[in-house]
Design a protein around this nucleic acid. Structure first.
Length: 651
DNA sequence: CTAGGGTTAG
């Protein structure tokens, strides 16, 4: 795309021809004043009708009317027509050009509307071609013309062309200091990845408005530099809803959900309005926090603001995701059911939500329901159904889906989908088959693919294939600690302690430290209590320890046996038991049992993967205490109920 | 005319 575009360089700047010389005298017809007024009225009326058009058919009807009224030369009306036409979200090329062609003496606005149309819909190179033609034919650009051209550059990420046009705005004069030109220029540089150039334009602008600031703030946020974004935001005198929203979503997108919520609270304090876009940022922050208390609060805010999930698809889809991630698929599904309109995001979020919670059957059913509607699945939808299949052990069904996704739905499998397939085969114990798939896949396998294989080796205890997968992972993701831990666990389970210790040495050499396991549980009033492994810092530590010991006795009576192989240190069995009992999720569970009423379900969040022993412990505990226990580890949710887990013991 | 939005696997 870019190289194709480069063929078009900008022409030398011609001398501008004064407007009068361009129109042949014969075109100047005397029109009586009253007729002029009538005509102006007609034009205005037609334009307002055009503004009400929402689809191509309507616009075509109005166009026919325009022609009937003899306005086929009227730049004003046709400019609006082209603008509205190209702003539709359907391709309309070459319709605008045909309209344009009929006009004998196009004015700069009509030219610009066409250039802008190409900048929005493509072919993008036509924007520059037309600009050159416009200059050649003696029409001078207006500020919108440059805005349109910068838009085109941003679309094809051609910063060289952008620089040329930037230079022209300076040479032609008067345009470089134009606010809109400057703003679109910043946007162009930012889109092309030249944030510093955008900043330079910003710094040198004579006049700036909140749009200029917002553009830069968003750019910093997308670069992960929230500190610079915050600094700019601080210095901005007039803050509107859009720029506040940019900060909220900026924090959310950079995995800083607490700050996002703080920012939102501040925004409300100051009295700035909230709309659906703001809400989506806040909802996404809540999803990351995974705290049920916040979830309900945000939902309240959304419903009171008039952008509730029933009316707004985007808000609805975000809420589905949020509730799934906060541990409540039921609530998520209620939202889904209540939505008036559903799109591929709504369906995919719900399917992924089901898959995350081990409701494979529900996920598949929803997928088939979706196929009955007009909504077409996309790559994310397939990630959802494939993971659902893999958790439920539906190997054949998954394989069929994988084969048909391209053939029937035009979604060609990405490495991510191969990762799902490797997971599917691997979980089902077909490790060799999975390895073969990795080795024959058409693209370079990424960390996710090898990681899925390594995970499967953990489930089925295959240190040899694990070693192959791990070696690739160590190269692809040298700093990802989880991979080393996983391999070390596999070696330990197989009793290969020499390999464990050499792996430890390797980690030490690379300066990698184990991520301390941490769990947190929401007690009464939504207060969050945090526990680390072996943590005795909680004020009620002694009670917690006692409760845990009591629980252990009860569970042992129920037949629970500590799974000593979950400890990857070569120590005595007593020591192993002691280590197992200090795992953070067990502490969190004990505290949860102490601090909530009987019958309450207990929700625990965890930053690393749950171990075999804790998993068995939770199963048994759910039976012995009659409580539902929900654990979110870094991968997915486990619902322990009556001695069984929703993950079917595969995770 | 220009600025802010949702789903992704180990």
């Amino acid at each position: 795309m870019v190289s194709f575009y480069r063929k078009f360089s900008l022409i030398a700047i011609p001398k501008l021809v004064p407007q009068e010389q361009r129109l042949p005298r014969s075109t100047k017809i005397f029109i009586p004043f009253s007729q002029l007024q009538q005509r102006k009225l007609l034009e205005v009326r037609l334009v307002s009708v055009l503004h009400g058009c929402t689809n191509l058919t309507e616009i075509k009807q109005v166009h026919a009317h325009i022609l009937r009224m003899g306005l086929e030369q009227c730049c004003y009306v046709l400019t609006k027509l082209i603008r509205i036409l190209t702003s539709l979200h359907v391709p309309v090329h070459p319709y605008p050009y045909l309209v344009f062609q009929q006009v004998k003496y196009p004015n700069p606005f009509l030219w610009t509307a066409l250039i802008r149309g190409y900048a929005i819909q493509g072919p993008f190179s036509e924007s520059v071609v037309l600009y050159n033609r416009m200059r050649r034919e003696g029409t001078g650009p207006v500020s919108f013309t440059f805005s349109a051209l910068f838009k085109a550059c941003g679309a094809v990420l051609d910063v060289n062309l952008g620089r040329q046009i930037h230079a022209q705005t300076i040479v032609i004069g008067g345009f470089a200091s134009d606010l809109y030109v400057g703003n679109t220029m910043i946007d162009m540089y930012v889109k092309c990845g030249f944030l510093n150039c955008g900043r330079k334009v910003f710094d040198e602008m004579g006049e700036r408005d909140v749009v200029s600031w917002t553009e830069l703030i968003v750019a910093y946020a997308k670069h992960g530099d929230m500190d610079s974004a915050g600094e700019l935001f601080q210095g901005l005198p007039m803050k509107d809803m859009v720029v506040w929203t940019a900060m909220v979503t900026g924090y959310a997108q950079n995995a800083r959900p607490r700050e996002a919520l703080q920012c939102f609270e501040k925004m409300q304090e100051v009295g700035v309005e909230t709309d659906d876009v703001t809400l989506v940022g806040v909802i996404s922050a809540c999803a990351q926090l995974g705290a049920a208390k916040y979830a309900n609060w945000v939902r309240d805010v959304a419903e009171k603001s008039g952008f509730g999930p029933t009316e707004n698809v985007v808000v609805g889809s975000a809420l589905i995701d949020m509730y799934s991630k906060c541990g409540s698929v039921e609530e998520a599904y209620k939202i889904f059911e209540g939505m008036k309109e559903r799109n591929v995001f709504s369906y995919s979020s719900m399917i992924v939500g089901f898959a995350m919670h081990g409701c494979a059957h529900a996920a598949m059913q929803l997928f088939h329901e979706m196929l009955k509607t007009e909504t077409r699945p996309n790559k994310v939808t397939f990630i959802g159904v494939l993971t659902a299949c893999s958790h439920a052990g539906l190997v054949e069904q998954g394989r069929q889906l994988f084969l048909t996704m391209d053939k029937c739905f035009g979604v060609s499998p990405l490495a991510d989908h191969y990762a799902c397939m490797v997971d599917l085969l691997g979980r089902a114990g077909r490790l060799e088959e999975a390895l073969e798939l990795v080795e024959t896949m058409p693209m370079e396998p990424h960390g996710g693919v090898w990681g899925a294989l390594l995970g499967a080796c953990r489930i089925h205890g295959n240190p040899d294939i694990a070693q192959i997968a791990a070696n690739h992972l160590f190269e692809l993701e040298p700093n990802r600690i989880g991979n080393y831990i996983l391999l070390s666990n596999i070696y330990a389970s197989a009793g290969r302690w020499d390999d464990v210790s050499s792996l430890r040495k390797l980690m030490r050499k690379k300066g990698l430290k184990k991520n301390p396991g941490c769990s947190w549980v929401e007690a009464k009033k939504g207060v969050i209590h945090e526990f680390y492994a072996g943590d005795m810092s909680h004020p009620k530590s002694i009670e917690i320890k006692q409760a845990l010991d009591d629980l252990l006795d009860i569970l042992k009576a129920h037949g629970y046996q500590p799974i000593l192989s979950s400890v990857t240190y070569d120590v005595s069995n007593e020591e192993k038991q002691r280590i197992l009992m200090s795992h953070s999720e067990k502490l969190a569970l004990a505290y949860g049992l102490l601090s909530t009423d009987a019958g309450c379900s207990i929700k625990i969040m965890k930053n690393v993967r749950i171990c075999d022993d804790c998993h068995a412990f939770m199963c048994s505990a759910s039976q012995a205490t009659g409580r539902e226990i929900v654990i979110r580890d870094n991968m997915r949710f486990h619902h322990f109920h009556d001695g069984a887990c929703s993950c079917g013991d595969f995770w």
